[in-house]
Design a protein around this nucleic acid. Sequence first.
DNA 1: AAATATTTTTAGACAAACCTAAAAAGAATT
DNA 2: AATTCTTTTTAGGTTTGTCTAAAAATATTT
Lengths: 220, 220
Amino acid sequence: MLNYSTSEENYIKAIFHLQQEDGTVTTNELAAELKTKPASVTDMMKKLKTKKLVHYEAYHGFRLSNEGKKLALIIIRRHRLWEFFLAEKLKFSWEEVHAVAEDLEHVSSKKLIDKLDEFLGFPRFDPHGDPIPDANGRIETSKQVCLTELPLNKTAIVCHVSDQSSEMLEVLGHKNIMIGTRLEVKKRFDFDNSLEIKTGKQAATTISDQLARNIYVKTA
Amino acid sequence: MLNYSTSEENYIKAIFHLQQEDGTVTTNELAAELKTKPASVTDMMKKLKTKKLVHYEAYHGFRLSNEGKKLALIIIRRHRLWEFFLAEKLKFSWEEVHAVAEDLEHVSSKKLIDKLDEFLGFPRFDPHGDPIPDANGRIETSKQVCLTELPLNKTAIVCHVSDQSSEMLEVLGHKNIMIGTRLEVKKRFDFDNSLEIKTGKQAATTISDQLARNIYVKTA
DNA sequence: AAATATTTTTAGACAAACCTAAAAAGAATT
DNA sequence: AATTCTTTTTAGGTTTGTCTAAAAATATTT
């Protein structure tokens, strides 16, 4: 794997994110995303094409090649591992981690990132709930979200509880909810944001907003 | 404090190191240090002069201004804290830390570095024994060296023992050597690299090479 | 399908950081 | 003190990544 400039890496990352939704990405879209001008985007696309990181025909948009996708996943891996480090070890708040990780992600030592991963205990999600690609570039397809944000009737699996107090564990135990439990939100009551939950074949239970805020799930 | 480019930071750091010995630094010296050409150095010196980081008159060498020194200490702080992190937390070897820290040192968030410092327990020396400037830019004047490298008859203070085994502590206890002990090396025997040590008013003792390798001191 | 509007690309400039080759300044030698 | 040698600076050029303004291609509207 060759070495790429900070600028090239930022383009690759932005294309990756945009093409998740769009499939193919346009010059104006990318210019807006990167806060640069369309002319600059065209220049860069020509370069990334000669480096075989994107497929690109003039006037017809672009998308990442397989090489480009691999690179994008490496950069996203670096970014999310640093975010995890900042939040978990340095006690940065949730909102602060992104900006600093934007700089750290361009330090390109593979060994650094793999050792950092190990040091952190191979975390699977960053502090925003986004999945972290592994050393081979494999990434989980679903984002980890708070139970309060899970759409109705969408099956999901509990993967994290942020408050481990015995009081909390008591309620969870009573309701038969634990890491790995498969569940769906059947109803959301606007009055107090409480949720009606269905787990497996059991009868439905109601969960308070306060409890739901501490439960994180990923869609199956 | 403004923001400086990676290149500017590398020049500032190099001038700092060179002027430790020389007082004032010449164009050729700096070009050699940075593996660049003299003409490039002149270009950069003009720029750093307008930014008031160096004192510079054409044909008469240069040295850092107070602003420049402050910046140099910030960069050195970042570098050495990252080196410590890499060695201590990520288990990089001694020889590997420098190259990676060369990249990490240019990430300029002050908050990042101060939180990293705290996370690491405010270490005072990097893995090579060089002192780490504190958050205010204050730095110890002496380098930490292995007892095997201490010049004869130079008073030094024990500040670290790398092997904490009970066997090791037994010898040290018996010889009345502990953290903070003031000592001098009186003689070095070439045959087995053993050392004759004088501590305070006590009679001299002899220390094996094996023991000396685990004792680190700084000159008072 | 022709006219108009939008998007994208080209053409030409600029700043940062580097380079080579030539000129100028300073140091060393006779 | 004049000459030679070395160091440093200037002058002009390159690459990377950006920009503006104009031209070309595509899309949309009538």
